[in-house]
């Protein structure tokens, strides 16, 4: 990678911006997990924290790392978390539907 010092600095700042963008997703995931009334809505909050929050943080760190090996490893981690969280969230939601847990409605 033939990168001058200026482009490296721009990439670093963009990475910081992405990490700052990813932090509120985690915090809102926790707040949603505590405040939401129902198991399905809590699942919704959880998946946002899993996918988008970690995706933003991985993207920012990959922009800052400056080496292809680290970037590949970060992407691998993100894909693994994505697969694991979607599989387990789907299992939980399907089991809850099979157990006849009613979704929450505004009543």
């Amino acid at each position: 990678m033939a990168a001058t010092k200026e482009t490296m600095e721009i990439l670093y700042n963009c990475g910081t911006l992405f990490i700052i963008l990813g932090l509120p997703f985690f915090l809102s995931g926790t707040v949603g997990l505590i405040r939401f009334p129902d198991i399905y809505t809590r699942l919704h909050a959880l998946t946002k924290a899993d996918n988008v929050g970690l995706g933003c943080i991985v993207c920012g760190l990959a922009l800052q790392s400056g080496s292809w090996a680290v970037t590949a490893k970060l992407l691998l981690i993100w894909l693994l978390v994505l697969v694991a969280s979607s599989a387990s969230c789907h299992l939980i939601a399907r089991s809850a539907m099979q157990k006849n847990i009613e979704p929450w409605t505004r009543s």
Partner: peptide, 15 residues
């Protein structure tokens, strides 16, 4: 589900 959120947060903290 909360334990799973802990796992993801732990991954982010480690990164």
């Amino acid at each position: 589900m909360t334990a799973q959120l802990f796992g993801t947060c732990g991954v982010a903290i480690l990164l």
